[in-house]
Simulated scan of single mutants.
Amino acid sequence: MKFCLLALTALVVVGSVSSQEPAWCRCALFVSSSTAEIMVYELPEVDITDCENHSQCKNRCTKEFNEMTNEMDLWSTVNGETVGQFICQNLYGNFVMFIHNSYVHAYYEVCGGPWEYAGLDSQQMLCCSLGQHEHCISR
């Protein structure tokens, strides 16, 4: 009986400690291929009030995506480089040498859960060759 009471007390303590952990929200850009989803850039984490509030995470990430990419425009210049160039350099630094004719998609993640689509796509397709952002040629 004492063991059951001790185990129950431990569960209550663990539950109350974990519920006090801060909530967090990740925002990232991905491209899709026939074999994989590739994270092309992770934006700064945004604050949310609790792990149940998916719409708050989505809205804050959407705001961050639009501000940092000028409404998902890969040819927009931010700090002297195009958004696409920044992504291509990031990919090249992670050993992804080529991306061709791929739209960039915005996703968010709430407190370590699955990545969820934020409903945003790049205005243009992304093409990278050895870390250089290039104009895509459709076939």
Rank of each mutant, 00 (worst) to 15 (best):
V13N: 05
L74M: 05
C127A: 11
G80Y: 09
W75M: 00
C25A: 08
L29V: 09
G119F: 04
E21H: 11
D50E: 11
G119N: 05
D47W: 11
T82W: 00
H105T: 13
H105D: 03
E37R: 13
Q20A: 13
L91M: 10
V17G: 05
R139L: 13
F3H: 01
Y107P: 00
A28I: 04
L120Q: 08
W24T: 08
Q132T: 13
L120Y: 02
C88P: 05
S129D: 12
M68L: 15
F98I: 13
S18I: 11
L29P: 03
C88I: 07
Q20N: 13
T69D: 02
L120E: 08
Q123A: 04
E116V: 14
L29D: 03
T77A: 11
S32G: 13
V40W: 02
L8F: 14
W115H: 05
C136Q: 04
E37Q: 12
S18E: 10
C4A: 09
S19A: 15
P44W: 01
M1H: 11
K63D: 14
T77R: 09
I137G: 03
H105M: 04
T69Y: 01
M39F: 00
L91H: 05
H54F: 04
C61F: 00
Y103R: 06
A10E: 07
H133V: 04
S76L: 04
V83E: 00
T49Y: 07
A36D: 13
Q56V: 15
S55D: 15
H100G: 09
H133P: 01
K63E: 12
W115R: 10
V13H: 05
S19G: 07
T82G: 07
E67S: 12
S129Q: 10
E21R: 15
T82H: 00
Y107Q: 01
L8M: 14
D121W: 02
G112Y: 02
Y108S: 01
W115N: 02
L8T: 15
H100W: 00
D73G: 01
H105W: 00
D73R: 01
S129L: 10
D47N: 14
K2D: 08
G80L: 08
S122M: 02
E71H: 11
A10I: 15
T69P: 00
D121T: 05
R60N: 15
I137V: 15
F65T: 03
S16V: 13
D50F: 03
I38M: 09
E109D: 07
E64M: 13
G80C: 10
C25G: 06
S32F: 12
S32P: 06
F65I: 07
F30Q: 05
G93E: 12
S55Y: 14
G84Q: 02
Q20K: 12
A7C: 12
H133N: 09
G131Q: 04
M1A: 15
D121C: 02
E67C: 06
C4T: 11
C4F: 08
Y92C: 06
T69C: 04
M1R: 11
G84T: 06
M72K: 00
H133Y: 12
E45N: 07
D50K: 10
N70T: 11
T62E: 10
V78P: 03
M125C: 09
M39Y: 00
K58E: 15
C128Q: 06
I38G: 06
G15C: 08
L74T: 06
C51M: 03
Y107N: 01
H133M: 07
E67L: 13
E71Q: 13
C111Y: 04
N90Q: 08
S102A: 14
I38T: 14
